[in-house]
Design a protein around this nucleic acid. Structure first.
Length: 242
DNA sequence: AACGTCGTCAACCGCCTGGCC
DNA sequence: GGGCCAGGCGGTTGACGACGT
């Protein structure tokens, strides 16, 4: 028994995929669908693990994948979403049709991380030069962009950023709508920015703040003044009339 | 030309989660 | 409720090429 298991482990191939392996995998995925990867790996006769087959398909062979350079627009989206969600690569990837979590993760690590760190360093330096606390400096910058919102305190602003959008049903459904209804990446980017601006507007943000410190989404659902479908409808209508 | 360093990216690893029995 | 398994996810590794010394 143990001997057989060891033999099987020895049979498993690792490392770069050969062209004929790719062809075989693609043929079997077409035949069996994108599931039961262990069975697929066995049935195909590929000496690869199910996990390895799944990864190869999702990251390289899938026909809807975009191969090639990440555009400036895509980079902007990655930056914005990473700022919101952190290293939630698969979540970010879902907002960029044709891109994989692995691709975005690598792109972030090799191209963007350094850039962001430099920007943060610059902010820190400017704060030092202005002899203020870096956090206050950022708040000052933020206040300059929303002068009309005098009632918003710095603690409000911190609450908003603390909550983020990670568990937001609004956000998930909005972005599903974006990627489901558009006709290309430019359209995606345009819609993304529009919706992003709407969410970033002071009225939306103030609505999201819970005075009690509860999760904003719990807060929303417990309040009868919020209606997910109606609010989504408003956003979509606003978009469609533009 | 030889060697070292760095950047890039495909692939792997280990942990977590959700579904099923 | 608990065990098992498949799949998903983020972090890490390693091969390889480009570039500098």
């Amino acid at each position: 028994m143990a001997y057989r298991a060891t033999m099987q482990e020895q049979m498993i191939r690792k490392g770069p995929w050969l062209e004929e392996e790719d062809e075989r995998l693609a043929a079997f995925v077409t035949l069996m669908g994108e599931r039961r990867w262990d069975s697929l790996a066995r049935a195909s006769g590929l000496r690869r693990s199910g996990k390895s087959c799944r990864l190869r398909w999702l990251n390289y062979l899938r026909p809807d994948l975009k191969h090639g350079q990440i555009s400036d627009e895509e980079e902007q989206i990655i930056l914005q979403l990473h700022e919101r969600w952190g290293n939630k690569w698969s979540k970010i990837a879902r907002r960029l049709p044709g891109r994989t979590d692995n691709e975005i993760k690598n792109y972030w690590r090799t191209h963007l991380r350094k850039k962001v760190q430099e920007q943060e360093q610059e902010i820190l330096q400017r704060a030092i030069n202005n002899a203020v606390n870096p956090q206050d400096f950022l708040l000052q910058q933020g206040d300059r962009s929303c002068e009309d919102d005098k009632s918003r305190t710095s603690s409000d602003i911190l609450q908003i950023s603390d909550y983020g959008f990670a568990a937001s049903p609004y956000e998930d459904r909005l972005f599903d709508w974006i990627s489901g209804s558009s006709s290309g990446i430019n359209e995606d980017v345009r819609k993304h920015n529009e919706v992003w601006n709407m969410f970033s507007s002071s009225s939306y943000n103030l609505g999201f703040v819970s005075a009690s410190g509860d999760s904003i989404w719990d807060y929303n659902s417990s309040s009868s003044s919020w209606n997910l479908d109606e609010d989504l409808q408003v956003v979509k209508q606003t978009w469609n009339t533009q």
